[in-house]
Structure formats: structure tokens, C-alpha cells
């Protein structure tokens, strides 16, 4: 059995930073969903009315 470390394995720092980025992206997406939900409630049918 080969005991050599897998060269494709990420380091702990890389894993931590990737997790940090993933959480940040998830939070931003969540904020966008909530924002669009509330703006739709506020504007009602006017959300479709976008005169330039």
C-alpha cells in the first residue's frame, strides 16, 4: 500500500480559505434572494414597470 501523501490533496489553509469564500458567496446569494423578495413585496405589480 502506498503511504505517500496525495499530491492533489488541498492543504489545511487552502481548505479553510475555500470554506471562508464559500460561506461568503452563500451569504451574498442569500441577501440577494431576500432583497429581491422584499423589493417585489414593496413594489407589487409595479416591479414590472421600468420606464427608462
Amino acid at each position: 500500500m502506498d503511504n505517500k501523501p496525495d499530491p492533489t490533496e488541498l492543504t489545511e489553509e487552502q481548505k479553510r480559505s475555500r470554506r471562508s469564500r464559500s460561506i461568503a458567496i452563500a451569504m451574498v446569494l442569500g441577501v440577494l434572494v431576500v432583497l429581491f423578495y422584499f423589493v417585489t413585496l414593496v413594489k407589487g405589480p409595479a416591479v414590472l414597470n421600468r420606464p427608462l
Binding site: P5, T8, L10, E13, Q14, S17, R18, S20, R21, I23
Partner: peptide, 15 residues
Amino acid sequence: PETAARPQVSVATAE
């Protein structure tokens, strides 16, 4: 060397 083969994945955090 095997160390050079380690993937160069970003270490940037959200901060």
C-alpha cells in the same frame, strides 16, 4: 518534486 505538484489553489479568504 511532489511538493511542486500540490495544486496552486487560492488561499484568499473572504476578508
